[in-house]
């Protein structure tokens, strides 16, 4: 074994969370032209966690390398540069203009992982554009690795085990697993740092490798078909009722929920 651990983080370029999204004119998706994009916020948390682990881990548990990986169009490189500016050491870009489904992304990741052999893979629990929340789980399945999703605390112990606190419906659940493993991040895991100006400049010099899905021998053909994308119905104004009886009557006969 080498003397330290290696972490791979997934980053996705998505429409910025502050943008008011609009459905495109052909109703096949949302408008992305001339719209501000940034790194998926959950992926930012993943990058930050990798960097914090490096700052925290000492001795045999030292983090030797952090690799950022993104699958997507040419502009995904901007997102990778951001990851490099935050503190990742090198980046891999799987370049494609095709729309990628979580299964395709998981397959691309598993192929890269079999080459790079990281000890830990940290992904956002979901991307804020499609909200799929599937890639991490599918990847764990494909690799037959343990997974700890919705992480709010991550600790590495003795170079070989992982303790993760997960946010579940009933509260917090603490799990341990062996390495290698997949972790997906929840919102409260950390607060990502800003990429400082000197680090933005240094990121330019860090290596960024580009490959294609074909190079990896992965079929990224869509398994799902999007029929139509529409805006949610506009909210109708509410009404004030005078009595409980009237409320029950409305719930029963108008809303038909009782």
């Amino acid at each position: 074994m080498s003397s330290g651990l290696r972490i791979l983080v997934g980053v996705k370029r998505v429409v910025d969370s502050a943008v008011k999204v609009r459905v495109n004119s052909t109703q096949t998706g949302v408008e992305t032209a001339n719209v501000k994009h940034s790194m998926n916020p959950f992926d930012e948390i993943a990058v930050e966690e990798a960097i914090r682990l490096r700052e925290k881990q000492k001795g045999n548990d030292k983090i030797q390398e952090i690799i950022a990986l993104s699958c997507g169009p040419a502009k995904a490189q901007e997102t990778l540069r951001t990851a490099l500016a935050m503190g990742a050491d090198r980046a891999i870009h799987v370049k494609t203009d095709e729309m990628l489904e979580p299964l395709s992304v998981a397959k691309l990741f598993s192929r890269i992982i079999s080459e790079e052999k990281p000890n830990l893979v940290i992904l956002g629990k979901q991307a804020i554009d499609d909200d799929s929340n599937q890639t991490g789980q599918m990847l764990a399945g494909l690799l037959n690795w343990p997974q700890a999703t919705f992480a709010s605390k991550v600790d590495i112990k003795d170079n070989s085990s992982l303790e993760v606190v997960r946010e579940v419906d009933g509260g917090l659940e603490t799990v341990t697993s062996s390495l290698p493993a997949i972790v997906t991040t929840d919102l409260r895991l950390n607060e990502p740092r800003y990429a400082s100006l000197p680090n933005i400049m240094k990121a330019k010099k860090k290596p960024l490798k580009t490959i294609s899905p074909a190079d990896l021998g992965v079929d990224i053909k869509a398994r799902l078909q999007t029929i139509k994308v529409t805006e949610p119905p506009k909210r109708q104004g509410g009404t004030v009722v005078d009595s409980v009886d009237e409320l029950l009557n409305k719930l029963r006969n108008e809303a038909k929920v009782l």
């Binding site: 800003y194 400082s196 100006l197 000197p198």
Partner: peptide, 27 residues
């Protein structure tokens, strides 16, 4: 200081970002 906004054009050897003049203007 922590985010490197106080040494925008300062050379990296002096702990600066060594960025362009326009970068300072944008900041």
């Amino acid at each position: 200081f922590d985010n490197g906004l106080m040494g925008v054009e300062t050379p990296a050897e002096f702990s600066g970002a060594e960025a362009s003049f326009l970068s300072a203007i944008l900041v």
